[in-house]
Amino acid sequence: MLGLKQVHHIAIIATDYGVSKAFYCDVLGFTLQSEVYREDRDSWKGDLALNGRYVIELFSFPFPPQRASRPEACGLRHLAFSVDDVVKAAACLEAQGVKCEAVRIDPFTGKRFTFFNDPDGLPLELYEQ
């Protein structure tokens, strides 16, 4: 048996590292655990934690290609975050200038959810616990 335990981290490449770092930390509430500039690659790497748990590796690279996003492109579809109240969380994002889609109901679980985008258009989801 392979023995996978959990997802260790998610790597995200940003076109503007500072803008994305501010979005994930100041808007979404992640904490910057460590940060390094890799001069040989002209690249920043930040390790971001959510509630003390390392979750996201945030990178910058010079001139990254655009991400194929819609409609339903192959690859990572979206990154979802669980919240206690989707409507309240979406209102918090909207108050900070982050546009959210209309809240929908998952037909299989009956739970509420909505989507929004990070500064590079990466689709993110809020999903009610």
Rank of each mutant, 00 (worst) to 15 (best):
M1G: 15
M1A: 15
M1V: 10
M1W: 11
L2V: 10
L2F: 13
L2T: 08
G3K: 15
G3E: 12
L4S: 13
K5Y: 07
Q6I: 02
V7D: 04
I10H: 07
I10P: 01
I13N: 09
I13M: 07
T15H: 13
D16V: 07
Y17M: 06
G18F: 06
V19F: 05
K21G: 03
A22C: 04
A22K: 03
A22F: 03
Y24K: 03
Y24L: 06
C25A: 14
D26F: 02
D26L: 00
V27W: 08
V27C: 11
L28N: 06
G29E: 08
F30N: 02
T31G: 12
S34E: 01
S34H: 08
E35Q: 11
Y37G: 01
R38M: 08
R38P: 00
E39N: 06
R41K: 13
S43E: 01
W44V: 03
W44R: 00
K45V: 14
G46W: 01
L48V: 06
L48H: 04
L48S: 06
L48M: 06
G52M: 12
V55R: 05
I56A: 03
L58V: 10
S60E: 01
S60N: 02
S60R: 02
F61G: 03
F61E: 08
F63Y: 10
P65Q: 06
P65E: 01
A68E: 10
S69E: 07
S69G: 10
R70N: 09
P71F: 12
E72I: 09
A73F: 05
A73L: 08
C74Q: 12
C74P: 04
S82M: 12
V83I: 12
D84K: 13
K88S: 14
A89Q: 14
A89S: 15
A89M: 11
A90S: 12
A91H: 08
A91C: 11
A91N: 14
C92I: 04
C92P: 00
C92Y: 07
C92D: 14
L93Y: 07
E94Q: 12
E94W: 00
Q96K: 15
Q96T: 03
G97E: 15
V98N: 01
V98E: 07
K99P: 04
K99T: 14
C100T: 09
E101Q: 14
A102R: 10
A102C: 05
A102Y: 00
V103S: 10
V103D: 05
R104S: 05
I105M: 14
P107R: 04
P107A: 13
F108S: 14
T109F: 09
R112N: 07
R112Q: 09
F113K: 01
F113E: 03
F113T: 05
F113G: 06
T114I: 06
T114C: 15
T114D: 10
F115K: 02
F116A: 12
F116M: 14
F116V: 09
F116R: 08
F116Y: 12
D118P: 03
D118I: 04
P119T: 04
D120M: 02
G121Y: 04
L122I: 10
P123R: 10
P123A: 02
P123D: 08
L124V: 04
E125Q: 11
E125A: 11
L126K: 01
L126C: 07
L126H: 04
L126W: 09
Y127P: 11
Y127W: 13
